[in-house]
Simulated assay, not measured.
Amino acid sequence: MRFGYTLMTEQSAPRDLVDYATAAERAGFDFEVSSDHYSPWLTSQGHAPYAWSVLGAVSQVTDHVELATYVTCPIQRYHPAVVAQKAATLQSLSNGRFILGLGSGENLNEHVTGEGWPPIAQRQDMLVEATTIIRRLLSGELVTWEGDYFRIDSARVWDAPEEGVPIGVAVSGESSVEQFAPLADHLIAVQPDAEVIKDWDRVHQADSRKIGQLPICWDPDRNTAVARGHDQFRWFGGGWGVNADLPTPAGFAAASQFVRPEDVADSIPCGPDLDAIVEAVRPYQEAGFTDLAVIQVGDEGQQQFLDKAAPDLLDKLRSAFG
């Protein structure tokens, strides 16, 4: 397995994220993924810088780690033609280290354009069309498009990289696999579901990476870690069916008001025990994931995690799953 670090734009300021990116490469992570939000889930997180500017800066202060969006929604807040241009530019800036991760988005971020929030079936159809458009534009060809959801008039990405831009798409079940496996190079998923991996390999029928993500809250003091995890990440247990439709941090606060610190500690490895994190990774390895990005929850203690805990954690992970 490859192991990555998550640049959580919801919990850190942009300059800090760039510093964390350099520290993560120094610690030995293989890749770095960035969330792409207009708003944090909870007001206590307190940040939401523009992910693409952050990644552009990160591409210039790192040398070899791969970079990816995890994930960008190209159906409302961003037009797919603009996403294609951004992805091509970042691929050029990073000397071929970029993977474009796409997903169908969250109301939390997309409602800001004032266009309403489509139902899930429509969002998936929009993502199919958007992904098709992005792939065509990344080839460098001149594209005119009149589709069900998007129009493009004589568009060309002039700096389309010769090596292209690999595309990963977030999937969660058989239906989404059937739609997106033919369009994408790699799978993205947040649950260690072996059936999804099997379905993907059946439909995709080519070498691909399966990229997952795992929240952790490392701290030398377990009580501090549990308190931070509860403050920053208690929304996580709501599941995608809830989280995709809530429109504001106030909604997430209300939905998670009865989540207890011990509930968070039961679902997220909290504290100094690196072996507990290794065991939390095991279901992803057993399900067939090839890549896993960890989220270190909270801005406080982030640098300490990267400097003190991450190198030892990576040694343990590679010993167990390398």
Rank of each mutant, 00 (worst) to 15 (best):
R2C: 00
G4I: 04
Y5N: 08
T6N: 00
L7H: 01
R15C: 04
V18S: 13
A24E: 04
E25T: 15
H37I: 00
P40R: 11
P40K: 09
H47N: 08
H47L: 06
Y50Q: 15
S53I: 04
G56H: 02
S59L: 11
V65L: 12
V65E: 11
P74D: 05
Q76T: 13
Q76L: 11
Y78L: 12
A81Q: 13
A84Q: 13
A87C: 03
A88G: 13
L100E: 07
S104D: 10
N109C: 12
E110V: 09
E110S: 08
H111P: 04
V112N: 14
W117R: 02
P118H: 09
P118G: 05
P119T: 08
I120Y: 06
Q122H: 05
R123Q: 04
R123C: 04
M126K: 14
L127A: 14
A130K: 01
T131E: 05
R135S: 00
R135G: 08
S139N: 14
G140P: 10
E146Q: 09
D153Y: 00
W158L: 04
P161M: 11
I167H: 02
G168H: 08
V177S: 01
L183S: 10
A184C: 03
H186E: 04
A189M: 02
K198Y: 05
D199Y: 01
H204C: 09
H204D: 03
A206P: 01
S208T: 13
P215H: 11
T224Y: 02
T224P: 03
V226S: 11
R228Y: 03
D231C: 14
Q232R: 15
G237L: 09
G238I: 01
V242P: 03
L246C: 11
P247A: 13
F252W: 08
A254G: 11
S256Q: 06
Q257I: 03
F258Q: 12
R260L: 09
P261H: 05
E262N: 15
D263P: 11
V264I: 14
D266V: 02
D266S: 14
L274K: 05
Q285W: 10
E286T: 15
F289H: 05
L292C: 09
G298S: 11
E300P: 05
G301H: 08
Q304D: 10
K308E: 14
A309H: 05
A309M: 05
